[in-house]
Design a protein around this nucleic acid. Sequence first.
DNA 1: CAGTCGATGTACT
DNA 2: GTACATCGACTGG
Length: 197
Amino acid sequence: MAILKPEFYERDTVLVARELLGKIFVRKLKGEVLSGRIVEVEAYHQIGDEAAHSCRGRTGRNEVMFRRGGHLYVYFTYGMHFCMNAVTEGEGTGAAVLIRAIEPLKGIETMRRLRGTKIPDRDLTRGPARSCQAFGIAREENGLLLDGNVVGILDADPLPDARIGVSCRVGIKRSRELPWRFFDSESDWVSKGKPSA
DNA sequence: CAGTCGATGTACT
DNA sequence: GTACATCGACTGG
C-alpha cells in the first residue's frame, strides 16, 4: 500500500478522522521501521471548536496546525507528555486529527524499550502520549511532512461504518459536546479514556 | 475493578 | 496564578 498523499488530508477534518481508522502509521527510527494500525482518533478545528489549540488564532505553539494538510503536529502537555496530530485541510485553516491509540505491528521490541520494561504490551500504545513515546515522537518530529521519509501513514482498506464507534472527546472541557472521537469498536487497543460528555 | 492524586513544563489570563 | 487533547502509582472494595 502507498503512503497517503497531501490530497488525502486536505479535506473535511471529521471525514479524514474517520478514514484514518485502520490506516498504518509508520515511523523510521535509526534505520528501523516502527508501524502500527490507527484505532482511535479525535478531530479538532479552529472553527466552532473551543477545545482546539488553533481556536484563538495562530501562535508559536500551534503554527504547524495552520500549515497545509499532511504535516505532523506534535505538542507538549501536562509537563511531561507529547501528543501527535495529522494536520488537515488547507494552509491557514488550523485543523488536525489527534492520534489517540495505535495497534503495534512492527518494532514492538523497540517500543517496549522506549516505553520502559515494566509496561505491559497492552499499554504500549493505548493512549495519545503512550503512542508518541512508543514511536519515539517528540519535539524534533513537530512539523515533519507525513511523506514516509521519517513519518507517514500507509493507505489500507477503510473500516466498515458499522465498525466505527463515535463519542465525545476525551480530557477536554470546552466544546465537550462535539461527537468527534472515532475508534475501531472491535479493537482491544483503544484507550480507556472517558469521553467528557 | 474504580476512584483519587501528584508529577511537571509551557502557554495564556 | 491557572489550565492543560495525560499517565502511572496508589488506594479501597
